[in-house]
Structure formats: structure tokens, C-alpha cells
Design a protein around this nucleic acid. Sequence first.
DNA 1: GACTCTACGTA
DNA 2: CGTACGTAGAGTCA
Length: 621
Amino acid sequence: MSAGELLAVVRAAGGLGLADDAGCWAVPAAGPAEALAALARLEEERSPRWVWWSAQEVLAPLAEADPGSAGGSAPRGLRPARAWDLAAVHRLLEGGADDGPAAVRAAAAGLDPAGAPAPGQLDLVGAAPGATEYGHDGDGDGPLRPDGHLRPEWVDGGWADSPARAARWAQVVLETARMQEHRLQDPQARADAPAAGSAAGAGGGGALQTAWSESAASVLAVELAAGGPPLDLEEASGVVERLVGPRPRDEAEAARQRAARDAPVLAALGHRAATSGGGGAHAGGAPDLRSPVQVRQALADVGLDLPDTRSWRLERLAAEPGAHPVLGALVAWRQAERFAVAHGHRWLEETVRGGRLRAAWSASDGGAGRMTASAGVHSLPRELRSAVRAEPGHLLVRADLGQVEPRVLAVVSEDPALARAAEEDDLYSPVAARLGVPRDVAKIAVLAAMYGQTSGAAGATLAAMERAYPVATAFLVDAARRGAAGEDVRTAGGRRIRVPPVEEVPVEAGDAALDRARSQRAARGRYARNAVVQGSAAELFKAWAATVRARLLRSGEGEVVLCLHDELLLSVRAEAAPDVADAVVTDLAAASSRWCRAVSRRPVRFTADVAVVERWSQAKA
DNA sequence: GACTCTACGTA
DNA sequence: CGTACGTAGAGTCA
């Protein structure tokens, strides 16, 4: 077996099931530590491409069990160099939310997903001994039903719970990967929604590359969950105290603090503050500031009739001469309240453990397949970023992709003029020259084209955009057209973006129904138009992140601690930081040119700002 | 308890 | 009548 050959693995109570092209076998292991040792040995000796239902399922328990993990917060457990994640590839091929084994197998085998066993469903017919239609199956309790679907008893886990059975389950895992591989390279299998780029749509190596990097991102997501951004708890607590006050010792004190925060706003509204004592939010008829309805009414009572109470509206009014004092007070209250509720003391207690921000990470979420994180890690307020701080002996390397979405648009649309603009460090300056408008107008026009914005200043420049970059514009218009018709689209790497079907409206329907249908179609169009760019950008980002991860894995110099759509944050040993910073740029060049070759005919330049910092908040060098 | 609405932080 | 995400509280329905 040479490096990179597929090796399927399944965990079971008494050990592991493994399968490669030569067959399947069981490896008994008394506990997770023994299982980890066995897998680590295989990684060392064979350097395979690991195949699993999901990285999460296999890797997360091993990380927990790693005996070398005591004290350290670096990634633990098995650190695979290569993976094939059936769930990740399934999401790529099919879209949708269900990426469990039953759905994955059904799609890979080209079976009707409706026939797949639902979770918890007993397959009485298939499992019944002597059932005639399955009588030819000499393996009545095997992993597969004669119709090709998985047997529900195996899906639920109970029946694969010995090393020997796990080995047979691993055989199924391997076979499913081969099926996915075939489908990835078969244009017929993906005729439902043509790919954005040319190469991926035509099959070939491009699709495999995407499957590999999406699988690597899946591994990275598990490692981010076990690691994550280092947070200086004392410093973070200081920031929170400064912004929302000291940590309350009990609920009564918390209520007093809330009342104290409310008081200035209520006073400006002409109300006496509610007396403390939790629950009595409406004392003296004062409005509940946390209720948008009551706030709007209260503002109306002082002569401010507003359509809603959004902060940007309040801020604009507050800035006017002679503005009502409640406006400024309310804006300040909103900021403090928001911070207290979303990133306050309770948040610190719940999400910081062992000096790291602990979150659940998903490698491909939402419509477009971006990485997501829970616990508000992706919406960490700027004020807290100074507390994301390198651990002793380490430094942070932060790297941002520059203008990634218009560059990605150049790739997926294969627009030669936009690709030429991407040669510049600042893509928008040649675009501005070509459009004959100032740079900031050009930037708005490009973004508006990608987001489907038609109103305001951007709308006026759209026509110029269309003349200057007809290929890119036509690409976006076509994606929007498909979306508006309720048809699926695909990203550059071939990710299927499911577009919900549009509602049919009978001709005799009233104006209101027709308006609703029109706005629904427009919304679907904007969604699809944006998703092909945003989703393709997510793929490029993950290819880059996977390349960086692989380098850090080989060198042992550090780890990825945060992925934020177009930004990477690494924790690396201090002495290695300058070299790693250089390497991240090299890795982008390698990953982006590989990605461009895989998904299109046109190379496009990508850039990154990289800096070595102690704190995340520090400016790029 | 599950759901929608409003709101707001990030990209 | 610019996209995506996660989160929280108020309010509604069952």
C-alpha cells in the first residue's frame, strides 16, 4: 500500500474495524487509548487516506482519550494527514442537511433517498428471518439490505458494536467512498445543477481535490473544537467588567445591575427607574427596554414616531442637532446590553476552558458551505479581540485573504478582464479605472453585483459594470436566474446549493400574493447569485487552511486556532513565527493555483496580509 | 416546548 | 428591494 491509499476505519466498543482494497479486518482494543495507538501506528506506517463516516465520529473520542494531552491544549489524538470524509463529500455532492450514513449511502449508490432507513426506524421486513423477498440474501443480518440501502440496525450503531462487525461496516465505508469518487467524476451524476467553473463541471481531478480539502476541513473542525483560540481569561474579564460591570454574585445583584443600566434611558423617557428585585420589569409603568415593541411605543410617547428601533436609525437621529436625549442613551444602552448578554460574564464562564475559547465547529454549514462556529466565536466583538492572546512561548500568526470574493468571481466566471484586475494587489483600482469612477464607487459596484443589490448608488454603476465585465456579470445573472426559478446551482468546486422551490401562484391571485411571489423569486435569485461566489470562496479558503494545517502538522511548529471565512489565526512556537508567516503566503500560492487549475481554466492571483502578533487585535504589519 | 420576530455582532 | 452565520429575549401558539 502506498501513501494516500484509502483505509476505512470504524470504531466499536471492543476495538476497531478496518478495510482497504485488499479486504477488511478487526483490531481489538481495550479502550480508546489502545485504539488511538493502533491508528497512530497505521498513520505512521502507511500514511493512508483515512475514510470515515465523519471525522467527528472517529477523531473526537480519540482526542479525549489521548494520554499525552494532560496540561497541554494543542490538538490531541490522531492527527491524520489525509482523509475522505463521507459526510463532507456527501454535503458537497448533494447539499441538504442530512449527512448521516443512511442518506450518504443512498445518495452514493444512486438510490432513492426516500427509501433509506430513517434514524431509529426498525426494518421489520428486512430483518425478519425467512422474509421471502430477501430470501436470496444469504446474509440476513449483514450491513446491507438487498435493495442496497443500509440496514437500520447497523446505522443505529448497535449491530456494528464488535470489532468483527465493525470490520464489515468499514468495508461498507470504503465501498461508499469509491461510489462517491465515481460520482464526483461523472458529469451525468451531477446533471441536476451544472458547476460554476468549467473543469469541475467536466469532471476530472478537480472534483477529487475539492473532496480532499473539504475532508481536511472536517478534520480541522474537530481539532478546532479540541483546541481553538487562546484567550487570556483575566484580560477578558477586565474588558467585560469595564463594559458591563463586575460579575454579579447572585441573581438579585444581576437584577440590580440591569436596573442600573436601564435607569438613564428610563429617566430620559420621563420614567422613574424600575425598583430592583428581578421580574418587576414594568414597575411604575416603565417600558421594558428589551422589548422592541415597548421601546417603539415609549419613543412614540415622547414624540418620536419610528418604523423600527434599529440602532443605525437611532444613531442617525441622535446625531441630528437638538435630538432627543433618549436617543443617545438608548444607543449606548443597546451596546452595553448586547455585550452583557452575548459576551458577558456568563459567556466567559461557559466558553473558556483551559485558556481556550471552546466552540463546536462545522466545516461546511449553511447554504454556501462556509465554516461556522458556535458560542459566538465568529462574532467576537472587537473589544474582546485583545484578549485573544498568544500563550507563553508562542505567537499568533494572523493572515487575511485580500478581496477574496471578487477574485473568486474572476475564477468561477472566467472573466479575463476581472482576472487581469486581480493581478494588482488592489483589485479595485484597475476596476475603477475601467469603470471610470472613484475607487470606493467601483468597490460598491462590484459588491453590489455579487450581492444582487439594485438600489442606491450601487444600482447606477451596475450598467457600467455590465459593460466592463460582461463575462462576470453574465455569470452572476445566470446564477440569479436559476435561483429565481427554484433551480439548484453549484459552486466552483461542485458543491450543490439547494434552492428551495418557488411557490406557484395562480394567475387569478391577488396583487398581494403576486407581490409576495415576486419578492420570493427575487430573494432566491439573490441567494443563488451570492452563494456561488461565497461558497466558492469558502472552498478556496478551506483548501488554503488545509494546506497550512498540513504544513504545521509536518513541522510541529503550531496549530490553526481560528478560521473566520477569509482569515486564519495560528498559534505557533515563538521562534518559528516569522518562518510560518512566510510559509502561509507560500501555502496560499500553492493552494490557490491548485484550486484554480482544479475548478477553471484561468489562473487568478490571490493575496494575503500576514502578521506576527501577540494579540489578535494587533494591526496587520 | 417549539416557533417567529426583532435585533446585532462578525465575514 | 445586499448575502451568510449564531445568539438572545420577547412574544405567540399549543
